[in-house]
């Protein structure tokens, strides 16, 4: 049953190779209506050259975790209340502001979802790309422009030399996302966080952009955190998956195993709700109920009100992350039943 690839993945992670280690991260938003607990004890690691896909619905805390890692959390109202974010051996959360700023862009970078609103509408793409070099590397504007053109060529934007002075709105959606990628790659960081990089694009362009991202990642041997709710995208590029629900990781697994044998009812529900060609004509499965209100997360397992397998214990006890195998874990009291079904 094990191909060569899965065997490699199942090797215990080399502690030297661990690039990012998020430990017991808690983030809350103090709003007028109360405290919204967006992230409640997230642990994950990313190694150099590895792709971690973080999966979950809107409001599951996947983007907030990423923002906390980048240090771009809107604060107030957002606060990291607990945990560590160890990046290349340093805890980012205890770092000074200025040191933290230097990490951004230089050693870790982020790609955002909507490139049109994420790029500055009044500055040319050349200026926005070149800025990375003038600010972080002290280059002259002229040299930075040359670098910007190189970057645009690298992400395969046609006629880069002529278009370097164009503004974001003059590019197509796919090209804009390439520019975002180029900007993140500019200083060849060690970690890239891509927050739903293809959600705003149409399907054919999605594939191209993902391919480009994966290719650059391989080339530069970067760690990649891919935040998405698209299970289709994940299967092609990710090494491992962390499924999030209500600010917690409910299941982690190497990518191929999770599709075959999900160990959490939520993951199972997500997989069942992917439209499939052989089920044409049948009603599409949907997980019943709504994601929980982060101001009032249900007691016990947060998923219990929507879970088809919920028992009394699920309503009272928060399930720990049970070890399913050496590389897998599930936060379900009944993971054995789930996986065995």
């Amino acid at each position: 049953m094990t191909s060569l690839i899965t065997q490699v993945e199942q090797d215990p992670p080399d502690p030297q190779g661990v690039l990012l280690d998020v430990r017991n991260l808690h983030v809350e938003f103090r709003t007028r209506d109360g405290v919204a607990k967006a992230v409640n004890g997230v642990d994950y690691t990313v190694s150099a050259g590895e792709t971690l896909a973080v999966l979950g619905e809107s409001g599951s805390g996947k983007s907030v975790t990423a923002q906390a890692i980048m240090g771009i959390l809107d604060s107030p109202p957002g606060f990291v209340t607990q945990g560590e974010i160890v990046f290349q051996g340093q805890d980012l959360l205890t770092m000074g502001k200025e040191d933290r700023r230097r990490v951004r862009g230089e050693r870790m970078a982020m790609i955002f979802q909507d490139a049109l609103s994420s790029l500055n509408p009044v500055l040319s793409v050349g200026e926005q790309l070149g800025e990375m070099f003038t600010v972080h590397r002290g280059m002259s504007r002229k040299d930075a422009k040359v670098k910007a053109i190189e970057l645009m060529e690298r992400v395969r934007i046609p006629a880069a030399k002529q278009r370097v002075g164009d503004f974001p709105h003059q590019f197509s959606g796919g090209m804009r996302q390439r520019i975002m990628i180029a900007m993140a790659m500019a200083l060849e960081p060690d970690l890239i966080i891509a927050d739903e990089p293809t959600t705003a694009l149409d399907v054919t362009v999605q594939a191209q952009v993902m391919e480009l991202l994966a290719e650059l990642q391989r080339e530069l041997h970067m760690g990649l955190i891919l935040i998405t709710h698209d299970l289709g995208v994940v299967a092609d590029v990710a090494d491992k998956i962390a499924v999030m629900y209500a600010g917690r990781i409910v299941e982690t697994s190497p990518v191929h195993e999770i599709y075959r044998k999900p160990a959490h009812p939520y993951t199972k529900g997500l997989l069942r709700s992917i439209p499939r060609l052989d089920q044409k004509g049948q009603e599409l499965y949907a997980i019943k109920g709504l994601p929980p209100n982060l101001l009032h997360i249900p007691a016990g397992c947060a998923f219990n009100p929507r879970c088809p397998m919920a028992q009394d214990i699920c309503r009272t006890d928060v399930p720990p992350l049970y070890e399913v195998s050496e590389t897998r874990a599930s936060a379900c009291h009944f993971w054995t039943e789930t996986i065995g079904e």
Binding site: I72, R101, V103, G105, E106, A109, N120, E131, M132, V135
Partner: peptide, 9 residues
């Protein structure tokens, strides 16, 4: 947010 994420002062 992008500008902050780029590590600009």
């Amino acid at each position: 947010r992008t500008a902050v994420a780029k590590g600009l002062p």
